[in-house]
Structures are given as structure tokens and as C-alpha cells.
């Protein structure tokens, strides 16, 4: 059943969505395989320092004589899996909390929604600094800090969808047939929440990558000598005339964030009930 309504007719997919999906897939493959095929050890300081891009080192070397290309490719394996993990965690926790708030309503809703309001009021970077101060700066702690502030958007969206569904006739019909709350959520509610949440999540991957790189850039995330894009850009600041040190990680962040946003946008078009495509599907 799920496969059936997730199918994406070829005519509907925007070219940007396809390009985005290809780039995103490329980076995910790189993230998980780079360590096996990069030409140099990303941490080995064996090459001439500050060497401009050339035949041996296509993206040049940094101030410590490390190969930028190797660091960039393995860096994908640091940021992207953590960003995906962050998004999945936020999605699961947020959706669950939102579904409970929306379904049970009344004081449960009141308490959970005030909690999300409270959490949403935290400035992410300051929170990350607090976590870094408490637990020590590391990329994993940055993920925890980002998680704390990123689940509420899922909770809010799920809650509003569930609130709308609660009065749908078919949901009422199920309850009149004696469905348990869990069965109602599983059968009548969840399938309608999946689409919008997936859209939000795919748009959120880009944001999560930016956030983690940003925290690393500020020194609150990945610590030296880890090859991480944000900290690579941070290191480039010291050698401003060696443009290649900062530009390539910057381009990496740009392409991966844009790719996930394109994917999210075209998913939104596909799931949007007011769009032409969904109407065609509903008919």
C-alpha cells in the first residue's frame, strides 16, 4: 500500500528534484565509502604545506600538509551520517510527541505544546555552547544540542495534521467500530502524516548539515584534527590567501544542502494535496 502512493510518476518529477536526488545520493555514497578510496590519509601531514591544486593534489593541501581532497571526501562521512541521524531522531521523537498531543488533546496537548514552545525559544548556538561547556565540545554533543531544538517542528506539524484528522468521518467510523487509540493512530492517522513529515525531514537534512558545520566552524562541534567541513573552513581563515582551503569545503556544503532542498521541494509538490499531481492521484 505504501509503495503504491509513494510511486512518483515520471512526468511529475521536476528536473531540479532529479538533480538534487542524484547529488544527494552521490554524497551519501561518498560519506560511507570515502575512507576506502581516498588517495591520502586525511590526517597524515606528509605533503608540502599550502600547495595549490595540481596534478597530485587536485584540491591542494592545507597549512599542515594534509590533502584537502581526501579530507573533504572523508569529511562527508563525518557530517552527513550525523545530520541524517539528527533528522531521524528529531523526526521520530517529534512525530510521536505531536501525534500524542494531537490525538489525546486536552491537558496532554496543553503540556506537550507548552514544552515545544519552551524548547523552540532556545537559541541553538547558545544551547550548543552550554552543552559544549557541560559535556565538552564534540560533534556528538553538537548533535545532542541540535536535537533538543529541532524536534518541535515535527511535533507541531504532526499535531496539526492529527487534529485535522481527528474529526474526519473515517477516523470517527473506526472509533465507532471499537478501534483502540493505537490502532486509530496506526491505521487511520499515520499514513496521512508520513508524506508531509518526509517532506519536512528532507528539507531539514540540509539545515542539519549547515547547523553541524556551523557549530564545528565555531569550535563547538568536531575537534581537530577531525576532517570536518565546518572546521576545515574555520582553519582556512588563518590562511586567507590560500583560497582552496576554504572554497572546496564551502562548495561541498553548498551542493549537499541544495541537493537535499531540491529533493524536499519536489517531494512537497508530490505530496501537496492542492497540487495538480495529488489531485490526479486522488481521482
Amino acid at each position: 500500500m505504501t509503495r503504491r502512493w509513494l510511486r512518483i510518476p515520471s512526468a511529475w518529477v521536476t528536473p531540479l528534484g532529479v538533480i538534487g536526488a542524484v547529488i544527494a545520493a552521490f554524497w551519501i555514497v561518498v560519506a560511507f565509502t570515502a575512507q576506502f578510496w581516498v588517495p591520502f590519509d586525511p590526517l597524515a601531514q606528509v605533503l608540502p604545506r599550502l600547495q595549490a591544486p595540481g596534478i597530485d593534489t587536485i584540491m591542494g593541501t592545507d597549512a599542515l600538509g594534509r590533502d584537502i581532497f581526501s579530507r573533504l571526501m572523508t569529511g562527508a562521512g563525518v557530517t552527513i551520517p550525523l545530520a541524517l541521524m539528527l533528522v531521524v531522531m528529531s523526526m521520530v521523537v517529534g512525530t510521536l510527541i505531536g501525534a500524542i498531543a494531537g490525538y489525546f488533546g486536552k491537558w496532554v496537548d496543553e503540556v506537550l505544546m507548552r514544552l515545544t514552545d519552551l524548547v523552540m525559544a532556545f537559541p541553538t548556538v547558545i544551547l550548543a555552547m552550554v552543552v559544549a561547556a557541560a559535556l565538552g565540545p564534540s560533534l556528538f554533543n553538537a548533535v545532542i544540542a541540535a536535537f533538543v531544538v529541532s524536534w518541535p517542528q515535527y511535533a507541531r506539524m504532526t499535531r496539526s495534521i492529527v487534529l485535522g484528522l481527528r474529526t474526519q468521518n473515517y477516523v470517527m467510523a473506526g472509533r465507532l467500530l471499537g478501534f483502540s487509540p493505537f490502532k486509530t493512530l496506526r491505521v487511520d492517522v499515520a499514513p496521512n502524516v508520513v508524506g508531509p513529515i518526509l517532506v519536512l525531514a528532507s528539507l531539514d537534512v540540509g539545515t542539519a548539515i549547515l547547523l553541524l558545520s556551523g557549530l564545528s566552524f565555531l569550535g563547538l562541534g568536531a575537534q581537530p584534527p577531525t576532517a570536518e567541513w565546518g572546521s576545515m573552513i574555520s582553519a582556512a581563515m588563518a590562511n586567507f590567501d590560500s583560497w582552496w582551503i576554504g572554497v572546496f569545503p564551502g562548495l561541498a556544503i553548498l551542493t549537499v544542502v541544495m541537493a537535499f532542498n531540491f529533493v524536499g521541494d519536489s517531494l512537497r509538490d508530490i505530496f501537496d494535496p492542492t497540487s495538480q499531481m495529488s489531485k490526479a492521484r486522488a481521482r
Binding site: Y170, L176, L177
Partner: peptide
């Protein structure tokens, strides 16, 4: 009809709604 499961004895009261478009789950 609260948040809890409806007592089994009362599933012998059933209802048909006005709007046929929202009466059926679109995904099942």
C-alpha cells in the same frame, strides 16, 4: 467517545455519515 477504546458492547451502534468523500480511509 473519548480517547479510550469504545466498549465492545456499544459497537452495535453504528453510524453512516453525510459526506461520502471523507467516510473512507483513502489509503486502505
Amino acid at each position: 467517545l473519548g480517547v479510550r477504546r469504545r466498549p465492545t458492547a456499544f459497537t452495535s451502534i453504528q453510524m453512516v455519515f453525510q459526506d461520502p468523500n471523507s467516510s473512507l480511509n483513502p489509503r486502505i
